[in-house]
């Protein structure tokens, strides 16, 4: 409808708004603004609290720490967009990592081969999740709860519970931990890989038919099927692609941690889900954007990193992350409630 200057609606549009309402409006129109806003607030808060926070050195470390969770959160976003959830994120990554490391330990196998087998295994693990969801029609929560235990146990049994240190591994497996400088920043190749994953998947989700189907299946699976979307094939592909991403995350993690450890990344599952949710993706599926997840991952890590710089111990950091999720989602709900 065209705005009629004298109409009641036009009158309403010109009404006085409180500054808070105006912010609410702005955020509603641009959903990615709210996590960005939260990230900004977090930065300012920590900058005031600890002067060393906003140095090139700290920022480099922050990005390096974010890389693994940010990578995992890509897979998690895909799954959550289809109205699912993946609790086996960390387990698949660790299993893949232990297989890569054990196979190539002390020159047992060329690095390339070990890497490929490890990644292929993660793809297979994702496909198993996908097959259980699509063929046996089990809820994703149950499927990945089960495979979480199974993959964790296999990783422990296979590795004998032993860590494998960097020195015993081929250069290729450690390569993503190598860094280079841009000005005063020190970035790792792992960060570059993560940025590439985000670029590729954002493109796929927003520019291709496959991306549209992911949203359609997550929003209303039955309508998508009736419209001719191959729902089951899309779901299977989503879990499989997620597995691929976890495999790449395993490679990044070896470089980052300087070792392959069977009990690495204990908070990977929750951190990845937190990043997705803070990033504005709906747990009910069909709504959300990958860029939000990247910002979400940065928020989670900034929080943790900033608190640790302030000397806050681990338990309190976990507690703070819990609060962060609840507050972030509450703010998100408030923004969605906006009228017109």
């Amino acid at each position: 409808m065209t705005a009629d200057v004298s109409s009641a609606a036009a009158e309403f549009a010109r009404r006085q708004q409180s500054p808070l309402q105006r912010i609410q409006h702005q955020l509603h129109g641009r959903p990615w603004l709210s996590p960005l806003f939260l990230l900004f607030v977090t930065f300012v808060a920590f900058f005031i609290a600890t002067p060393t926070f906003l140095t090139a050195n700290s920022m480099g470390i922050l990005l390096q720490q974010t890389a693994v969770v940010a990578a995992l959160a890509v897979g998690q976003t895909l799954v959550i967009l289809t109205a699912g959830i993946d609790l086996s994120v960390g387990a698949v990554m660790v299993l893949s990592m232990m297989v890569m490391a054990t196979l190539t330990k002390d020159g047992g196998m060329p690095g390339v081969l070990g890497l490929l087998i490890g990644v292929a295994l993660a793809v297979g693990a994702g496909a198993i999740n996908g097959l259980l969801v699509t063929r046996i029609n089990l809820p994703p929560f149950i499927v990945t709860l089960g495979t979480l235990s199974i993959f964790t146990a296999i990783a422990l049994l296979y590795s004998g519970g032993e860590s494998i240190q960097q020195e015993h591994l081929p250069g290729l497996l450690n390569a993503l931990g190598n860094d280079f400088g841009i000005g005063k920043f020190r970035l790792t190749w792992g960060i570059v890989v993560v940025i590439a994953i985000y670029a590729v998947m954002s493109f796929v989700l927003s520019q291709t038919a496959w991306g549209r189907y992911v949203y359609a299946v997550g929003d209303d699976a039955e309508s998508a099927r009736l419209s001719g979307v191959p729902s089951k094939r899309i779901l299977l592909a989503v879990y499989t692609v997620a597995g691929l991403v976890y495999g790449i995350a395993a490679w990044i993690l070896i470089g980052r941690a300087g070792a392959a450890t069977p009990n690495a990344a204990p908070t990977a599952n929750l951190d990845s889900i937190t990043a997705v949710v803070i990033g504005g993706t709906s747990l009910f599926g069909g709504r959300g954007r990958l860029i939000g997840t990247l910002i979400g991952a940065l928020i989670v890590q900034t929080f943790d990193f900033g608190l640790s710089q302030m000397g806050v111990n681990q338990q309190w950091r976990v507690l703070a992350t819990g609060l962060l999720v609840i507050i972030a989602v509450a703010i998100d709900q408030w923004i969605r409630r906006v009228k017109a």
């Binding site: 549209r212 189907y213 949203y215 209303d220 309508s223 998508a224 009736l226 419209s227 001719g228």
Partner: peptide, 21 residues
């Protein structure tokens, strides 16, 4: 279909061309 089978979150054009992009 009686239940329309449109995808609420997608826009009109995306719905019209769904599965024949």
């Amino acid at each position: 279909y009686q239940q329309l089978a449109v995808i609420p979150a997608l826009d009109i054009a995306s719905n019209l061309y769904l599965a024949r992009e």
